[in-house]
């Protein structure tokens, strides 16, 4: 209960009018950040993604310069130097990578036995080719295939999905029926047919990967286009008289870019893996060309006696897959529109 006396003591003088400056209330203190700056801040906090990016950059760097580092050419055969285990200067003293290998069940130093003076860091294969050089050449080819395939997937997928979603109606109906038919055919059959028609090689593999690979991207882009094209900011742009081209480049694409990038980040490792798979089952690259897939296939054949042939390409492909996936995850967390306004 209030005390009545106290209430009576209040006089108009006790009250002071507070005026809020209208301009003050409109002020925004926060520094202005664009969507991308904000996303970068988010990504930077994700340690796994940052470490993955560093590792990925190192692998890419090695793919570029690795083949020239030790003076051996990847395709020079030397049967006298065949099946040598890894031997790395400096580390050999520790007992690892010292050139010891098994011969008829006994451990011997094959370099001394065969009187080889050179060092083969990751050993040699059955034809005496330097595996270190071949590993990075193969990585380069695998990455190249993956990047090109992902880029083509992206271009076709974005264009197809964008057109289908933006123009809608009959166009959309027809285009979506085509997609449904393509999806109905098992990828592997399409790929094997493609490779039978074309000469096996990098081009054939890229075509094989992209021929159905763009569908995922096109579906995502179509859904995004449908979502954004009826947003009020797009309607506002149309009432101002903007043309379709302007609406697509200024309003739709910038809003979808995040999702396109995320999806591409997951396409790349899939392409790497798919290429390796094709090469492993023998319908991919043909010798003497190397890719991670063919190297793993070579290593798999001699897994029991020369495990190092399998070991290094397997490590590289695993690292690539993990790195791309972690970066993709990090990007998704940083760019996902659902977590922002």
């Amino acid at each position: 209960m209030r005390n009545e006396n106290e209430e009576e003591k209040l006089t108009p003088e006790d009250f002071e009018r507070v005026t809020i400056d209208a301009h003050h209330s409109e002020r925004i203190e926060k520094p202005s950040l664009s969507f991308w700056q904000d996303a970068w801040l988010g990504l930077r906090k994700n340690k796994a993604a940052i470490v993955s990016m560093v590792v990925l950059l190192l692998v890419i760097l090695m793919a570029l310069i690795g083949p020239y580092l030790n003076g051996h050419a990847g395709d020079s055969q030397n049967l006298r130097h065949a099946n040598l285990p890894p031997k790395i200067p400096g580390i050999e003293a520790t007992g690892f990578f010292d050139g010891d290998g098994k011969l008829a069940g006994k451990t011997v130093n094959l370099y001394e036995m065969k009187k080889v003076d050179e060092y083969y860091w990751f050993g040699t294969d059955g034809l005496g080719r330097d595996l270190f050089t071949r590993l990075w050449e193969g990585t380069r080819v695998s990455l190249f295939i993956a990047f090109v395939a992902a880029a083509i997937d992206m271009v076709i997928g974005v264009a197809y999905g964008g057109i289908s979603g933006y123009f809608g109606g009959r166009t959309d109906d027809i285009m979506q029926r085509v997609v449904e038919i393509l999806i109905g055919i098992p990828t592997l059959i399409v790929v094997i047919l493609m490779i039978m028609i074309m000469d096996p090689g990098i081009t054939a593999i890229i075509v094989a990967i992209t021929i159905t690979g763009w569908i995922g991207m096109s579906r995502i882009v179509r859904a995004q286009t449908l979502k954004y094209k009826s947003r009020e900011f797009v309607l506002a742009s149309r009432t101002l008289g903007a043309k379709d081209g302007k609406i697509i480049t200024k309003h739709l694409l910038p809003n979808m870019l995040g999702i396109i990038i995320i999806n591409t980040m997951f396409t790349i490792p899939n392409a790497i893996f798919f290429e390796a798979f094709l090469s492993f089952i023998g319908i991919g690259l043909q010798p003497p060309a190397a890719s991670l897939g063919t190297l793993i296939n070579d290593g798999y054949k001699v897994m029991e006696n020369q495990p190092y042939v399998l070991l290094f390409p397997a490590i590289v492909i695993s690292v690539l897959m993990i790195a791309f996936n972690l970066i993709g995850d990090g990007l998704r967390d940083a760019l996902d529109p659902k977590m922002k306004d």
Binding site: E232, T239, L240, G241, N255
Partner: peptide
């Protein structure tokens, strides 16, 4: 003829600066 929309959260393109949002009509015309 111009229009003002209902949803203030959907009616401005989140990727554009206010400067470019307001100037869109100026540019088009």
């Amino acid at each position: 003829m111009q229009m003002i929309f209902q949803d203030p959260y959907a009616s401005l393109n989140p990727r554009m600066k206010v400067l470019d949002i307001i100037a869109e009509g100026l540019d088009i015309h």
